[in-house]
Structure formats: structure tokens, C-alpha cells
Design a protein around this nucleic acid. Structure first.
Lengths: 154, 154
DNA sequence: CGGCGAAAGTGGCATATGCCACTAATAGAA
DNA sequence: TTCTATTAGTGGCATATGCCACTTTCGCCG
């Protein structure tokens, strides 16, 4: 089967990654559907939950996302009362974030469904493989990539 | 170091995948910046290029993306004259897609920059590893996941 | 041939993400 | 202390993606 690989899953690492992300995202989104949360929102709530009233910048950095994008993504969660923000007492530029009681409750609710999806996934690919994949993805995410031309000698 | 792992890169396969996608996406986007194309658009043009005047549904399926999402994503490319559509001559429901000459030219231009980014990435993680990662991601993308509750006995 | 159910897209609506220009506030240099 | 460079966010604008409700065409059955 010389060319059996469906043509075009190009060799682009980025395209392949996005494609997988769309696919897996849909699965987790479906799983979380009953909670009304998207998998991205779930991830964000979780990140906030495990952090200690993190500053927006800290969250953005942890999730490797643009600060402004984080701000946008946070809005629906604030609107729905799951998250609230408050100014840091020592540095008024800093805005800290925390879950509201409803947010904690919603997260608990979502965690139940999430764990089912997670188990479902790991039953398919294997716990070991899943862990390796996550490790590989974290490694990729933390790579210090830079375009050569962008960084001239000095 | 009991909890040394940066707290919160949760064990969620989906969250990890998205995080990596954001990170890598930014790199490829930067690389393609000079062309004015986003890495997603590049991927889409490439997919169209290697297909034979594919129907929208075929593209959506290959990229595992929602048909309507594809339609939306295609708009800026059509507006900018890189892509054009036409009705299938045998089935008027089907809309086929192809690159315009400008689209082909733009793709060529982008491929040059893409290959630099791609090489840069593979120099970091290793060609072998990159290939394995893509294979793993393709496998994940093609998994037939289903929520148990969603599929009752019948 | 008439009509029904499936298939392929479209449009609207909502969230996800990024970049850029701008504002507020702080840390430092003078 | 005052002026400046830096840091943390915000808002606007544009693309990326999905879901759902429709509309148009087909394919097929009676």
C-alpha cells in the first residue's frame, strides 16, 4: 500500500497537531456538553482552581496563551458567574483571578464527566501511551523555537 | 520534589494538546508571517493543492473539521483571491474548491518559509521523533471515541 | 411522477486565539 | 522627586471552529 496514507495529512507538524486537537477537542467537548462548558473553559477553570489566585499573566504563561486571548476567554466565565477577578493589593496593575463558589461547583460537576472521557481515551490508547504523548506535547510546547532570520547575530 | 511538576499542566490529554497547538501554532504563524498567511490557511491551501478539486465535504473530512467551519475559514482565502469554488457538474449540491494561480503562487511562497520552520522544528526534536509524534497524533485524531452514556444499548 | 428522507452547504451565533495600539501603574535612573 | 522604560491589562479587529436551523438537490420508493 504505497500511498495508502490518506493523501495530505501533510508532514506539517503544526497541521497534524491542529487536526488532532480539533478531533480530540470535539470528543472532550461532547463529554462536557451536559455541563455547558467547553473543554477549553474546563481547562481554564481547572488551571485557576489549582493555582492560588493567579494573576492573569501567570495563567496565560502557564497555558501558553496570549494575555489578551485569556482576557477574552475569561469573559463568558465571568459573565456566567464562575470566575471573578480582583486587583492585587500590592500592584494595582495586576489582576488576580479566582473561582466563585459556583465556579468550584461547576468544576466539580465537570470533573466527573471529564474523568469519564479521559478514561475512555486512555482505554483506547493506553495509559502509558497517553502519558508519553502528553510528555511529548509538553516538550514541544516548551521548545524555544525561533526563526533563524528573526534572530540575526545581534 | 513531590509536586515539582509545574502545577496544572493537568493530565488532561485535550488540554495538553491544545496548549502544544497554541505554542507550535505561534511558531509556524511567525514563520509564515511574511506571506500574510496563517499556518491554518497554509494548511488549508496545501490540502486543496494536493487534492483534485475536492468537494468541501471531502476537505472537511480530511482535516477533521466542521463543514461550516471550513466554509468560514475559506472566505478570507476566496476574498483574497487564493481560492475559488465552483459547482460540481453532476451534483449541484456539491461545491468544489481549487486554488487560483495566485493561490498556487502564494502557496509556493509559503512553502519556502514553511520548510524553514519545519526544519527548525525537526532540528530541535529530531526527524524521527517528529515523525513518531505526527504518527501518534494522526492515530489520536482517527480514534473512534465515543462517550459511553451517549451510546446506550440501542 | 409525487413525495419523503438523506446529503451538502450556508448563515447566524458564540467561543477561542492572536496581534496591535493604548492606558494605567510601577520600578528605576537622574 | 521627576521623568522614562517596563509591565500588566484592555479593546478593537480578524481569523479559527463548532453547533444548529434552514434551503437546495438528490436518490429512491411507491
Amino acid at each position: 500500500m504505497t500511498e495508502a496514507r490518506k493523501p495530505g495529512f501533510s508532514d506539517c507538524n503544526n497541521a497534524t497537531l491542529r487536526r488532532a486537537a480539533r478531533s480530540l477537542g470535539r470528543f472532550y467537548d461532547d463529554a462536557l456538553g451536559p455541563t455547558g462548558l467547553k473543554s477549553t473553559q474546563f481547562g481554564l477553570l481547572f488551571q485557576i482552581h489549582i493555582s492560588d489566585e493567579p494573576a492573569m499573566g501567570a495563567i496565560a504563561e502557564a497555558l501558553i496563551m496570549d494575555l489578551s486571548a485569556l482576557g477574552h476567554t475569561l469573559k463568558p466565565l465571568i459573565r456566567d458567574g464562575y470566575v471573578e477577578t480582583f486587583a492585587d493589593k500590592d500592584d494595582r496593575r495586576v489582576k488576580r483571578v479566582r473561582l466563585t463558589p459556583q465556579g468550584e461547583a461547576k468544576l466539580d460537576e465537570a470533573l466527573k464527566l471529564w474523568s469519564i472521557a479521559q478514561r475512555q481515551f486512555e482505554d483506547k490508547v493506553g495509559v502509558e501511551q497517553a502519558a508519553k504523548l502528553r510528555a511529548a506535547l509538553d516538550a514541544v510546547a516548551d521548545l524555544d523555537l525561533e526563526m533563524p532570520a528573526a534572530a540575526p547575530s545581534n
